[in-house]
């Protein structure tokens, strides 16, 4: 027995050795950073020499800052828009799934992946060209069909009334990323028998979609919904690429992430940036718990 215990002990040593490096890395580059962020949410901090405990001052400032409220309002619009944008990929997957020819089905699936392989930041830069007022594709097209005069320009990104719409619309038809393939994988789990039974019962395509297909991809839809919401709340890089640090006309499209970046790295308010970061964290946490509850109940 003693021999086994010794053996187990030696195995354990090796075992802990396996986790040592990942753990060290995560403790330093994640937990230390998180702790530092939480602590400095209560500090006046310029990231350098000024480092002074100010208690709840950042929090009070934050609650009185219209920019903060506005940034969460903007992110709310983007999340709501993303819900609508989820529709086309679902429809695309269902239609793709119903294409009889296997050869075309495969070709289409590959073609759907191709646009996704262009780095997303390049896609954004190309769309930035589309929106460019003077020689951008969109205005050129409107001039071509005579919708606007030859020397008219529409400021897609710089007009306060259009900025957010333009940011929502970019990436049309939003079928890139993993959406279509994930739904398709779910649909392909439905066996032929189910379809044959439905046909014998005289169910039409809409009935089949509502009663058979939708329930079977709800898991995928829910996963995508959760991932989409969480990543939408955190995203700000796309806005930065389109509009720079300022977030568009009068900061119209400033989202929380961009606000953190601006307060910290443009205004030197590192502590305030940390405090806004905490708010984003708490909202993400609440949503994650809510989402998990939702998934568990439905299962």
């Amino acid at each position: 027995m003693g021999n086994t215990a010794l053996h187990r002990f030696r195995t354990h040593w090796a075992a802990y050795g396996l986790i040592l490096l990942p753990l060290a890395l995560v403790l330093l580059f994640e937990y230390q950073v998180i702790a530092n962020g939480i602590v400095h949410a209560f500090y006046r901090w310029d990231g350098d020499t000024v480092e002074e405990f100010v208690g709840l001052r950042n929090l009070k400032m934050l609650l009185r800052d219209p920019e903060v409220y506005h940034s969460f309002y903007v992110i709310g619009i983007f999340v709501a828009a993303n819900l609508v944008k989820m529709l086309l990929p679902i429809v695309a997957a269902v239609v793709l799934h119903h294409i009889v020819s296997e050869r075309f089905g495969y070709i289409y699936r590959v073609l759907f992946v191709v646009p996704m392989i262009i780095p997303s930041m390049v896609v954004i830069l190309v769309w930035k060209y589309f929106y460019e007022p003077n020689s951008g594709m969109l205005n050129e097209f409107l001039r071509l069909i005579g919708a606007i005069g030859p020397s008219d320009t529409i400021q897609w990104l710089a007009d306060p009334g259009l900025t957010i719409t333009s940011l929502v619309f970019y990436g049309f038809p939003w079928v890139g990323a993993f959406g279509v393939l994930i739904y398709l994988a779910g649909l392909q789990n439905i066996s032929r028998d189910v379809y044959e039974a439905a046909e014998i019962d005289g169910a039409g395509p809409l009935r089949v979609f509502v009663s058979i297909e939708m329930p079977l991809i709800t898991t995928q839809i829910r996963i995508n919904l959760i991932l989409m919401t969480i990543s939408a709340i955190q995203s700000w890089e796309n806005i930065y690429l389109f509009l720079g640090t300022g977030g568009g006309p009068d900061g119209a499209a400033t989202v929380p992430g961009l606000l953190i970046f601006r307060e910290a790295f443009s205004h030197g308010l590192f502590g305030y940036g940390c405090a806004i970061g905490m708010v984003v964290f708490l909202i993400t946490l609440a949503l994650t718990i809510f989402n998990n509850q939702l998934v568990r109940v439905r299962k």
Binding site: H12, A15, Y16, I19, P22, L23, V26, L28, F29, E30, Q32, V33, I34, N36, G37, H40, G47, I230, I233, Q234, W236, P256, G257, I260, F261, A264, F265, F270, G273, C274, G277, M278, V280, F281, T284, L285, T288
Partner: peptide, 30 residues
């Protein structure tokens, strides 16, 4: 299934809930 493994696992998994955007400032400092 060694002592502490479960606890360590959650230490890693919890990180998936933390938004990287909240880390931007302190990461720069580190």
């Amino acid at each position: 299934r060694v002592p502490g493994a479960r606890w360590l696992f959650w230490l890693f998994m919890a990180l998936m809930m933390y938004p990287p955007v909240a880390n931007m400032v302190p990461m720069f400092k580190l």
